[in-house]
Design a protein around this nucleic acid. Sequence first.
DNA 1: CGATACATTCAGTATTGATTGAACATACTT
DNA 2: AAGTATGTTCAATCAATACTGAATGTATCG
Lengths: 162, 162
Amino acid sequence: MKPEIQTFIERLGLFLERLGMSRTAGRLLGLLLVSEEPLSLDDLARRLHVSKASVSTNARFCQQLGLVQRVGVPGDRRDYYEISLNPFEHAIRTRTAAVSEGIRLAQAGVEAVGDDRPKARARLEEMRDLYTYFGALMEKGITGWGARRGAAPGDAERGGGP
Amino acid sequence: MKPEIQTFIERLGLFLERLGMSRTAGRLLGLLLVSEEPLSLDDLARRLHVSKASVSTNARFCQQLGLVQRVGVPGDRRDYYEISLNPFEHAIRTRTAAVSEGIRLAQAGVEAVGDDRPKARARLEEMRDLYTYFGALMEKGITGWGARRGAAPGDAERGGGP
DNA sequence: CGATACATTCAGTATTGATTGAACATACTT
DNA sequence: AAGTATGTTCAATCAATACTGAATGTATCG
């Protein structure tokens, strides 16, 4: 395997580790990202130099996040994994969920401080409003991107939809 | 201290922990967020039930992120900390930096796979383009928010969305 | 039905990261 | 200048998390 690709996989591992995944999950996504074909658990374990148990756990984790999907191969009993069609939209949606939590949290803060702490209250209201603003912005952004994708099917839209 | 506020601080600690800070740093920010006055390192240590060493480390960390600032109190030698004016814009700018890293990473991936893996290449190009798109969107969002703030200074601007 | 090929779960281990108390450094006060 | 108050750094400890090999399920094949 080309060293540039190895490096890419490692970098993605580090990158996603900082975003809260395990490094192995990040590497797994990287490997699937650069693979032309789906890979079995054993393939993944071998090429990632990691136990099959770990791959199993991490692959299922990625699947629950919608980043990866299992596919069948005719005449083969094994599970194969491939990157799902729009993993990055999924990733951003996950972020958006965090934004919602931020809004609720800020609102709880506003209610907790009540009326007798004007500075704190103003800060928390700003936190709430900024999160709300950005949540809406990202929502619109995802929608817009989806439309763009649909409108220019040749450029990124490969294979069949769901 | 009101239990609702305790709860808020703990929730913020968890929330920011998932975003890559230490939980103590998150609690520290929460405490400063709901405080009307700046707090000294000893105040923070006492109210967070944490060693002064840990507070020192975490406070300086938050300061370097621009989330917190030191202020002086006349006639007092101690350092006091307060939340900085626009910590959330800062937080979002930090996210934006992560987006830039995502763009560079995706581009490195595109170059690594070259021309002979069309599916992988298309995915990585989409990753790059989506990150680029969102980076620009967030940049515009921050600018817009700042303008809005400047237009209504002193007002926390609750209520209306964009 | 027994054997085989998988995938998953689990207890134990290793690794990482945060926290602590103590030592150190620095700047005031008298 | 000595003593005191304060902030920082550092080795050791502690807690959380991920990884592993072995055991356990579950379905397919002969």
